[in-house]
Simulated scan of single mutants.
Amino acid sequence: MPFESTEDAVRAWVHGWVVSRGAAEPSDRSWGFTVDVGHSREVARHVLTSADEATVRRLAESSPGGVALKVFVPAPVLEAWLPPGWGLLDGHDSLMAVSLGHVGAAPVLPDGYRLSSWHRGGVTRVLVRAADGGFAARGQIAVTGTTAAVDQVETDPAHQRRGLGRVVMRTLARTGAQQGARAAVLGATAEGRALYESVGWRVLAPLSAAALRTPEGGTD
């Protein structure tokens, strides 16, 4: 296992994510962390390293709109714990991790694509462009000591099934290892999970999220 415990992996994910997204330093809580995010649709988030119904309900009932809960339980379990007015957020599936061991050769792109990367503010970003210079794929990694968080991995639908996602992931893993990280973690969507598993990542825990519903019937 890349981390000694799931709680250690969550801590690495939180601290790497705030660097990746430029969020505030996490505040330690008895149940996990609070992070000020600063977006209009997500002003802050509570990340629960250990969750139970009473804690989830207490946090939800005391949180205004724009505050999200990130909880490491299956979505149906979290949904059953939520008070009236709250709903699940899409795009969450699992917390995943990988060991960053031997740094192999740089991955090779398919013909017609080119890769660039740059490092700024503690974050290394990788961009793949198509032959016409348009966007094809991307991802980024934030190294915080011996651990790292991978984030914002995306492949344009027109360029999927060409191995670009695997190139991005392997490039990020290589970058993290070169910067001293021994393990990496990420929050996966259901769609991204297959890609990550194909390059050696494994699921540590389910990941679900919730927020107060908006007046239009959605969630923040």
Rank of each mutant, 00 (worst) to 15 (best):
A149G: 11
V153W: 05
E154F: 15
L186A: 09
L88Y: 04
G187Y: 01
R57L: 02
Q140V: 05
L207A: 15
R202E: 15
P107H: 00
V126G: 03
V108K: 04
R11P: 03
W81T: 03
A194S: 14
P107L: 04
E79C: 00
Y113K: 02
H159D: 00
T189S: 15
A137G: 01
V71W: 10
D156C: 08
A210F: 05
R166C: 04
G176H: 00
R120V: 12
G104I: 12
A44R: 02
V37Y: 12
T34K: 13
A210L: 00
E79I: 02
R58E: 06
E79T: 03
G38D: 02
S117N: 12
G22S: 11
R21P: 04
P84Y: 12
P110H: 06
L195D: 07
W31E: 12
V168R: 10
A44P: 07
S62Y: 01
G112K: 05
D8T: 13
D28K: 13
D132S: 02
V47Q: 08
S94I: 08
S5K: 02
L172Q: 03
H159L: 04
A137V: 07
A194I: 11
T124H: 06
V143F: 09
S94E: 12
Q179F: 06
T124A: 00
R57V: 09
P26H: 08
V168K: 01
G139A: 02
L100N: 04
G165Q: 06
S5P: 07
R21A: 12
A194D: 14
A97H: 06
V73P: 06
G91Q: 09
E216F: 03
R213G: 09
G134N: 00
A137I: 00
G22Q: 02
V153S: 06
P83N: 11
L48E: 08
G65H: 09
A188N: 05
R182D: 15
E25A: 15
L48Y: 11
A131S: 15
D52K: 08
G65A: 11
F135K: 00
P76D: 11
A131K: 10
W81Y: 09
E154T: 10
V14C: 06
S5M: 11
A210W: 04
V168F: 07
A44G: 13
H15V: 07
A158Q: 12
T55N: 03
D36Y: 02
A142T: 09
G32N: 02
R161M: 00
L115G: 00
R11A: 15
S117F: 09
L115Y: 01
G22N: 10
A137D: 01
L89Y: 02
V71Y: 05
G87H: 04
H92A: 15
R129D: 13
